[in-house]
Amino acid sequence: MGVLSFLAGIIASSVVASIIAVLYSLVLPGIERKVQARVQQRIGPPILTPGWWAVLKFRYKAKTEPIAQMPGFYKSIVYLGLGVVILLFLFSTPYWWAVLGWGSILGLAGLLKLEEVLYVLMGSQSQSILSTSMPVPDLAKGAKGEGIRREFVEQHSAERALKMMAIGSIPLYLALIVPFAAAKSGLLSSVVALQNPAYSAASWFSLPLPSSPILFTVPGLLAAVVYFVGYVMLLNEKPFSILKAKIDVIEGGVLEYAADLRAVYYIMRNLLLFTLSSIFVTLFLGIPFDPFMPLLFILNMLLSLIMPVALAIFVAFSPIFTFRQIYPATIGLSALGVLAMILAASI
């Protein structure tokens, strides 16, 4: 009976949490775009347009077969990506903390890494018309570069994704470790218990507030800065959007997703935007997204707005970095992350 009720609870909480998260996350890009537009003295789109209506629009667009080396696999990657992000979000919700240690630094970091791998796979598969070998005179009439391998721009994007995976995301992982180092445990439950002792005994309608959030300590503050920049890197937003720099690599490996697939990609991207923000609120403020505690999850959702809004302002004032700038930025942030980790462990 105990196992059954636990299973029923985990299924119910997963369904409720996933639905709320997806619906809410589709509002975030609208807020993000609106903030950017106001910074740029533009009106910007209606709040629901870039998320909600874009997804609905793509849902009803004519379906086209993507041009890819393995179209079936290419199409499945986006669904796999959505699954990974949903799991990532669920692992940060309290019911999953008790399942095989998935609600831990390993569960979160593992899924984030998997999500990054998917970008490499997308890029290596997509073969859009933008770089299709065209029968133009420059090749046919003996101009430069005959015989040199021609690469699809998406494949170049995949190479960049690989580099970003190798070095670009290190700061985020270092920042993720800091709350766990402070709690001297690898489990999310311990991190929340350290900051919000009242949570474990709270009833469903109450609002247990954290007594000692890690964010308001020196290591927490340093880690929050590093986490934010890592968040921008993982979302491939400016200035770290080199794998979809627009001027050379358009949208990276997702170029061939259209209609339904594009809609799923939008949901995946927006859910990741929310999930990373929600994880930040859970880890650094001790306010988890508990689907069965309405006041608590609403507070988590509201505080999760901080990151996308900060992201929008950051993006509005940033150029795109090339690897000339990304490498030193990553090294500097990683050093800051290590310092935060050492400080957190020594408290």
Binding site: L130, I148, V153, D248
Partner: peptide, 24 residues
Amino acid sequence: QPKPANAENVVVEKELSFGPVHPA
């Protein structure tokens, strides 16, 4: 590795071509 026509001692790994159909 092939070399570009007017360069010496330069290794070219690949060609990336942009346009004329390119939104940027």
